[in-house]
Design a protein around this nucleic acid. Structure first.
Lengths: 240, 240
DNA sequence: GCCGAACTTGACCATTTGGTCAGATCATCG
DNA sequence: CGATGATCTGACCAAATGGTCAAGTTCGGC
């Protein structure tokens, strides 16, 4: 009920109220580009949170550690994100934005070889550049997706349904072996995200302190070769 | 210093002391087959712990919930396992026992086709029968393997090193495509464990309440086909 | 330079949780 | 049986942690 609570997070989606009030909100919203301070602090918090949630999971993460990492006092964190859960949700939303769209590369008019190779490269690239994002997501799903169940069952499911159609098309064209499209996507996800989520294991086995660009290049080559040989119908050897 | 603490966990590895004491310990150790009660209660606790750790992670799990699930009072849990960490370690040890050995199927004298197909089937089978074991392990690695780092860098690493040699042998024989053996193992692990660790996602996409035997059969077929086509050198088509 | 709103923060609090303990009960063996 | 150690357990505690709050300070528009 305090000032902060009602004023917080001026969002376009909040209750429409009287015209003047709406106008005023909009003005402020545009005026300072949505609050430069807010923008910057939310950013810092989100980034710190991603790191800490990735390292410790939802329950293991403490708002104190996140705040410290963001170089803000804990009370300040709770000014921008009422609860730990709200902050976590925000981090997840960020992550989904990344994940969501690489699938768009799959369209009927393309060659599966290219689409798949690009997809593998793109996902693997995220695993290298944003391993923490991947880990937060993995952790969420691993523990039953308490925050993402709806997303998985709706958005993601539909998306995969769609793209499965494309794969079936390629199969019908004789370009891909007859495989189950959904399981095919599972396999793509599994091999690409492995390098982010299980990096400790990968590093231990490879004997590396951290994965180098070279390691990722090798991974990309191996995955691409395996997947492409695995799912494509080999170009017909010209009849003798 | 209390009675319980010193008497707890009569293990063969504890300090050798006076001859009579040693004898007495041994007698009891054999007498009631290592304490039927202890055996049974530790079992119940380990099983409950596996479930709870899988669902909530190390930090999220509470000894209270584990105890409740095992139908024992919390104090009793702490009688058998001094700390949550000790219980967790015990669960992990259990899990590793499962994981450890499927790799033994890889020996130079076998055909890669068979070894790989069997390995995939075996791992996938564990994902179906002991998903919680897989999840506990995944969670541990995901969060930096604070308890397993040593195991990964030593036992596992050596094991993979060994088995890589076998794969190289197969490659030299012209039975497998020239691929990086270690990355090949990563890919095997990734696709097979995915069905345990990310089952919520898999279920959401497939629209299932739970994964059926049929789902696992389909998964097995798809994975095996993908991997085998992906890594084997196709039988030479008889020269025309 | 003034005003209201946005932001900051140290101090505080209620709850949760891992772990302890002392005393009661039970099992077994001579 | 009776003794001895294993097992059990309700009551308790200290520390950690998410979240609150009231009293500030700063900012942006007028």
């Amino acid at each position: 009920m305090s000032r902060q609570r009602t004023a917080q997070k001026p969002s376009i989606t909040r209750n429409k109220s009287s015209g003047t009030q709406r106008l005023e909100a909009l003005r402020k919203f545009n005026a300072n580009t949505r609050g430069a301070i807010r923008e910057s602090n939310e950013m810092r918090l989100l980034q710190a949170a991603e790191t800490v949630f990735a390292a410790r999971g939802f329950s293991g993460a403490t708002t104190a550690e996140i705040a410290t990492r963001a170089k803000l006092p804990k009370a300040n964190l709770h000014y921008y994100f009422r609860t730990k859960a709200e902050l976590y949700r925000a981090v997840l939303a960020n992550v989904l934005e990344l994940w969501l769209d690489e699938l768009d590369r799959f369209t009927s008019d393309r060659e599966p070889t290219e689409a798949i190779a690009e997809y593998v490269a793109a996902k693997l690239n995220w695993s290298r550049k944003r391993p923490n994002a991947s880990k937060v997501f993995a952790n969420e799903v691993l523990h039953g997706a308490p925050f993402l169940k709806a997303y998985l069952s709706n958005d993601l499911r539909r998306r995969v349904e769609d793209k499965s159609e494309v794969v079936r098309h390629w199969i019908a064209q004789g370009k891909m072996r007859p495989l189950d499209p959904k399981h095919f996507f599972f396999q793509l996800w599994a091999v690409t995200q492995h390098y982010a989520d299980f990096d400790v294991q990968v590093r231990a086995v490879l004997g590396r302190g951290r994965l180098t660009d070279q390691d990722f290049a090798t991974a990309a080559e191996n995955i691409t070769a395996l997947i492409l040989h695995g799912c494509l119908v080999p170009a017909r050897t010209r009849p003798a």
